[in-house]
């Protein structure tokens, strides 16, 4: 193998190693980017929607209490506005199903909310329900707590998933950085070995040639550098040998 090819092969291997490490890092970093986006898209949006749903439910609960105390206008106004907020937040959550079992939670929320809504949708002021704390505690509050529990379950699912994604991000960042560190360390070791081999295929034979030519000149010894490589330096050794033989003649 020619010296040029040998050196080129060494450099090509270093370049290959660095290129692969670079590609790996780019791939892992792009995955981090996607994970961050997924974290926002998948979980954060649902978490915000869940918070809005809980807030709306609490307002509805207050609205029912106002109706029980006979304040029809204020009570109905709060209930209608909270219902609208709940439904819009629910729509966001329903259109953002990203986790396993999330659909089941959405269905449970829908069912429990409809049950809760069916209670306060009926007239309260001017009926036997007005001023009835027993009715509130047995029917309204129970349904309210059920609906709130289901929304909280959805929140918990997304929070857990968010935590897992965030933990995974830490690993991904290590995976993105490590190839670079490994590539740099490997390249350093590689260069040390490469330097050794350059010495082996270039410097050592050249030294042998110099010593042999010196011996020939100084002591008129037969020229022999004893180069074992089959490359340009071997050709040079043969040519010098021919030259010395011609000179001897």
């Amino acid at each position: 193998m020619k010296i040029k090819i040998k050196i080129l092969a060494g450099f090509l291997l270093i370049i290959l190693m660095l290129l692969i490490a670079g590609a790996m890092s780019i791939y892992e970093f792009s995955r981090i980017g996607k994970s961050v986006k997924a974290l926002i898209d998948d979980n954060y949006i649902t978490l915000e929607a869940s918070k809005s749903m809980i807030e709306a439910l609490e307002r509805e609960d207050s609205g029912v209490l106002l109706l029980i105390s006979g304040k029809w206008e204020k009570g109905r106004s709060i209930l209608n506005s909270a219902d609208s907020s709940f439904l819009s937040a629910f729509k966001v959550a329903k259109n953002n199903i990203t986790e396993e079992n999330e659909e089941k939670h959405i269905k449970n929320i829908e069912e429990s909310y409809l049950k809760f809504k069916s209670i306060w949708k009926l007239p309260i002021v001017g009926t036997d329900k007005q001023n009835s704390t027993t009715w509130y505690l047995s029917d309204v509050h129970e349904s309210f707590l059920d609906a709130k529990f289901e929304v909280e379950a959805l929140m918990s699912l997304n929070q857990t998933s968010m935590y897992e994604e965030a933990s995974d991000l830490k690993n991904q960042s290590i995976r993105a950085i490590m190839p670079g560190i490994v590539a740099i360390s490997s390249a350093l070791i590689f260069l040390v070995i490469f330097n050794f081999f350059i010495g082996l295929i270039l410097v050592r034979p050249i030294k042998k040639l110099i010593d042999s030519v010196k011996d020939y000149n100084s002591y008129s010894q037969n020229f022999s550098a004893d180069i074992s490589n089959h490359d340009e330096l071997k050709v040079l050794e043969n040519e010098i040998l021919k030259l010395t033989q011609r000179l001897q003649k």
Binding site: M1, G10, L13, M17, M24, R175, P179, I193, F194, F197
Partner: peptide, 25 residues
């Protein structure tokens, strides 16, 4: 998740292994 880690390790091992074969008989 270990695909890249194992592939890269395999390539590093292969490169370091093949490298001396070019220069040493």
């Amino acid at each position: 998740t270990s695909v890249i880690a194992l592939l890269y390790s395999s390539l590093v091992a292969l490169i370091f292994g093949l490298f001396p074969l070019i220069y040493v008989k």
